[in-house]
Nucleic acid binder design. Sequence first.
DNA 1: AATCGCTTGATTGTCGACAATGCAACTAAA
DNA 2: TTTAGTTGCATTGTCGACAATCAAGCGATT
Lengths: 257, 257
Amino acid sequence: MQLKSYLTNAIIWLKLPLLFNYVDNAMKNQHLPEPVTAADRVLLEIQRAIVEGEIAAGSKISEPELAKRFDLSRAPLREALARLERCHLIERTPNAGARVVKLSVAGLVSLYQLRETLEGMACRLAATQMTDEEIAEVQQLLDQHLSTQRVREGESYYQEAGDVDFHYRVIQGSKNPYLINILCDELYYLVRMYRVQMGMNGPRVSRAFDEHKAIINAIANRDGELAELLMRRHIGASRINIEKHLSIKGKDHGTST
Amino acid sequence: MQLKSYLTNAIIWLKLPLLFNYVDNAMKNQHLPEPVTAADRVLLEIQRAIVEGEIAAGSKISEPELAKRFDLSRAPLREALARLERCHLIERTPNAGARVVKLSVAGLVSLYQLRETLEGMACRLAATQMTDEEIAEVQQLLDQHLSTQRVREGESYYQEAGDVDFHYRVIQGSKNPYLINILCDELYYLVRMYRVQMGMNGPRVSRAFDEHKAIINAIANRDGELAELLMRRHIGASRINIEKHLSIKGKDHGTST
DNA sequence: AATCGCTTGATTGTCGACAATGCAACTAAA
DNA sequence: TTTAGTTGCATTGTCGACAATCAAGCGATT
């Protein structure tokens, strides 16, 4: 059991350079001034471990075990667990402990329903709230992502980073702090968990770029309604894509329901 | 200072019977199986204190002081603070402590923008997801609320309780766990804080009942689009109502910005 | 043989004390 | 008088140990 864990570790570490690149990117751009306290650091570690599947979905979380593993007390660890619960990566029941969330078709549908609505709203607001500079920056970023993606075909992490970055910018552009908090802090880690564990990299890459460009163009034209519609469609397509993979993999090793 | 606190306490205690009624009602109907651990209990206490204004908006939270006041250690208190941050009642900065959130026009607008979108979505989903029994129950509840409200004119807590109850039922009717979590656990305490501290009880009471009835009727007719539209309008009207009070009170004792 | 109750083990919840960090007042120099 | 530096204090972050609660295994009883 411990041995198996080490094996999983080894596999994960091979992926780490790419991961770090992604995390660095995220940290640089996004509002993560965090790694100042020990709880913050271990939070990032465990978040990554859960999203990557290093800590299996549905498995029980043992506080003493994790404390030993990261070599710190249970106090900051519990702080980290509280935040993990906040972004729906674990579920706690009083006096019974915490479990990593299970992936399911129903959960995916619920999550993406919400994303459609919320990111649609973000687009609508962004169309009136973003400055011309911010919009130009996003357009420039899209081209940049496209070129790096062409250089490194098949590197799904780059696509992932680019996609997250685009959505992040638009959400920030809404200038609504509560909306930003929900999407960037509470929902996105779970979204990434579905995408990473379902191995998303497929043929949607180039299509996604086109859709991104159409959305930012609508925002640039200050057409909020169109931007909202396009974003909802974009996320809907993404959901169907993942749903296909999930229903297949679900039959393989019972991660569904 | 301590004396003033006692005075405030005395005033608050006078309101408590009504409060308990409200809380009981909420606990009975809503998913609050909580008060099992000490942290849960103190969480409810502090939540109430903040929403009621017993702990002033914008004031600093001292962990040792609160620990002494509620006669428990800092460990469960920090757990409670973590959850308070989750529902946006306090804001924490690392190594600097927590402050109670400030009420502002900008914050109100952002919050109600989000409510419009999310509760609109809830209505749309509820129109297809609620069972006939659930719908009938809500309709029955509305009449019940109306009669108790007529008996006790001016008792704002009853109106508050009835309003919260109605919205709660519709949100639950969406059957989307993430949506339910955001609205009922993360946003509603802040919404109540705005309403309570702005002293909302005015002439909107009877109009609100009519609007509620129209919404549930649309849901009963399985007309999701109409239900969504009516709910958005309903919340928008409520926002304007509070906004008026807030801008007035804001000028009086500077709670704005 | 099956079920109920008890006991044991482990896990979570809570506590008090220590360490580290940040804030503020005070001093001294320009 | 103002500003920079320093010192002291208060608050937060972290730690290890204890208490309460839950789960499971064993034994006794019907």
